[in-house]
Design a protein around this nucleic acid. Sequence first.
DNA 1: TATAATTTTTAGATTAGCCTAAACATTTCT
DNA 2: AGAAATGTTTAGGCTAATCTAAAAATTATA
Lengths: 225, 225
Amino acid sequence: MSTLSAVEENYLKYIFQLSEIFENGIVKTNDLAYKLDHSAASVTDMLKKLSEKKLVAYKKYYGVSLTRNGLTIAVQVLRKHRLWETFLVKNLKFTWDKIHEIAEQLEHIQSDELIDRMDQYLGFPKFDPHGDPIPDKAGNISLPNVVCLADAKLKKQYQLANVNDDSAAFLKYLNKIQLKLNDKVKILDKEEFDETIQLLINDKKQLTISNDAAHNMWVRSVKEI
Amino acid sequence: MSTLSAVEENYLKYIFQLSEIFENGIVKTNDLAYKLDHSAASVTDMLKKLSEKKLVAYKKYYGVSLTRNGLTIAVQVLRKHRLWETFLVKNLKFTWDKIHEIAEQLEHIQSDELIDRMDQYLGFPKFDPHGDPIPDKAGNISLPNVVCLADAKLKKQYQLANVNDDSAAFLKYLNKIQLKLNDKVKILDKEEFDETIQLLINDKKQLTISNDAAHNMWVRSVKEI
DNA sequence: TATAATTTTTAGATTAGCCTAAACATTTCT
DNA sequence: AGAAATGTTTAGGCTAATCTAAAAATTATA
């Protein structure tokens, strides 16, 4: 198989990410179009092309899913993206909200040796700065045991494990309220009327966050001390 | 000025490199075509386009040179290329002969902040692993005082300052004969018949190199101890 | 200096990746 | 179930970057 273009790699990556959201794993043309910010017609074109290359299973008017080959490539692109993000934050001291755009470019650099050496240089990290799992060379992904903060239990101790990285605005918000990965969080109360949440951070700082914000945060449970 | 494509950046970079070879600074269509491995017709097309953007001064059937704007961009691309090469060798432990191709891709990643942070991370290096000067953020280039080994004097102590990085085969050859940057070299004798050179390396190892090889090495003179 | 050889440009074609508008298929609503 | 709304595909077009073949300009040669 000849090497894919950055555009093709992007399609596979986004199909993978969207397919994880829907239980059946089938991605609709419009959802992809929205994610990629392209017209639905363009997406249809590309899906036909990827289908010919046997990277996706595409059925007209129904949807698309990855083949085994397509999945392998998508996971490797994700691996590159997350390793680069890790490097940008850990070594170059970038803040969360600026790395996505750069990693979107770096993930398409073609060299297996480069990414393997980078992996080693970083110490084979299992999670990226957002808390997302980094696939290893073989494509294995560690799945942490997390729950959405919006669905988390009251008065139980959690730790911030992961955040949605789609919106730079949200990442800036996290900076502003000084909430970082692995900080301890406990829900003190949920307001029934507007679903706002009273959150206790690291056993000392208390603040109110919206249900919207809570939907962007993922937490893992922590033993109480 | 909107951002340029990787292809446009490449043209500017190669025009810059070729213009340094010819005294008048004028680059011919065919030379560029050879360097880029494109047809001459394609090059003509692109030169017209770059000329419209005022990045080059192009005169039909005569040749092309960079404008001030074009030069600025070419130097920044070179800066990125050489900083990335430095990172690949110093941090990721790549060998010389494998980095060019990867740096060719990395040099087109668009983010000023990325390259400035990388510069700092590397300690603001002045020369890359081949001994080529790395332009600083403002575009200033340190020019080391070097001479081609083929033109160097007999029995005089030099140090390997720079090598041509165009050919992976040559870089492999250097690895094989275990000659590295900054090694001490002294020409013991030149054979008139075939222009081969008897070279003394680090005051102990002696070997014969071809005139061809000598033309790919650049040395700076060193005080004898 | 006229002609041959070389270099460069022009003309016309191709591919990837995008678009809009119109047609078609599916789903939802009454 | 038929009509309306929504989602998807098809048809046709555009731009960037490449190509080959033919024409034109320049340079070298006899």
